[in-house]
Design a protein around this nucleic acid. Sequence first.
DNA 1: GCATAAAGTAAAGCCCGCTTAACTAAAAAG
DNA 2: CTTTTTAGTTAAGCGGGCTTTACTTTATGC
Lengths: 149, 149
Amino acid sequence: MSKSVQITQSLRAWMDVFMHRSMRGWSRFVKTTGLSMQQFSVLMQLHYKGPCGMSELNERGHISAAAASQLVEKLVQSDLIEREEDPNDRRAKQLSLSRKGAQLVEQGIEERHRWMDDLALNISPEEGALVVEALEILVRAAGQLDEKI
Amino acid sequence: MSKSVQITQSLRAWMDVFMHRSMRGWSRFVKTTGLSMQQFSVLMQLHYKGPCGMSELNERGHISAAAASQLVEKLVQSDLIEREEDPNDRRAKQLSLSRKGAQLVEQGIEERHRWMDDLALNISPEEGALVVEALEILVRAAGQLDEKI
DNA sequence: GCATAAAGTAAAGCCCGCTTAACTAAAAAG
DNA sequence: CTTTTTAGTTAAGCGGGCTTTACTTTATGC
């Protein structure tokens, strides 16, 4: 078996294990919040990409402006995000996470991270060094991939 | 920084990169199929766990029997799964992927694997050996985690 | 300045997926 | 053999989320 095929296969095997676990945990968590996936992904977006206007939201989420407006309305009602007028363009709104929204996102991330932590406990220190090195390589490679797009 | 904290942090960093990429790709793919997430997850379940009856479906999916029945009905209509009477218990049904359903699942998995393959291209052979070794450790550790539950 | 474009909202309507409740058919229990 | 339980379906109804259309308000182009 060639080197590159071997890498590919290892990555695929790991992906299968990983996806299965994390997807299940994730959708379970989102369910407990009472929010829809869409709603939660708006929160995640605000967390990772920072505050933005309505238009960014509907473009990135591939939904209509009206849909985005209604989505946001609910999140504002639930006190999870804040919607303020943009001082530079009074038509536009600035959306940002409220304290409560930020906490919820943090909690979700924590949730996702939990089994990573459990996993770490099943790895010996010697193996750990190897794993750390390998993951750094992977994260770097993933970054290079993004640049190329 | 202690060894175990370092492992944890590397795992978390990788998870963030990985989840972001794969979730986005996945939901995009599912959208192209025209199926809902629920519907697709039934297909995935049949793929990974093999044929099963209706009751397994609603228990595993945390939905009512009625919901499962309707879900399955649509998938049968779309010719993605097959529903046959269980010869041993004529009340029960055996659900299995149709040829078309299996192809769709394969396609979805292929889709998920694609960027793993691109990633492999950004890794040198020397790094690759390290990565392969590390991923094997991780898959094994994940397996041990499952056993403990 | 006036027409046009852009940002967002409101309302009406549609489709989807879920739930409950009632039902059929078969198996198990007694 | 009758009763009860189990597997699954059907139908009615609700709510969510989306779209379209119409509208308001603000900015931009000529």
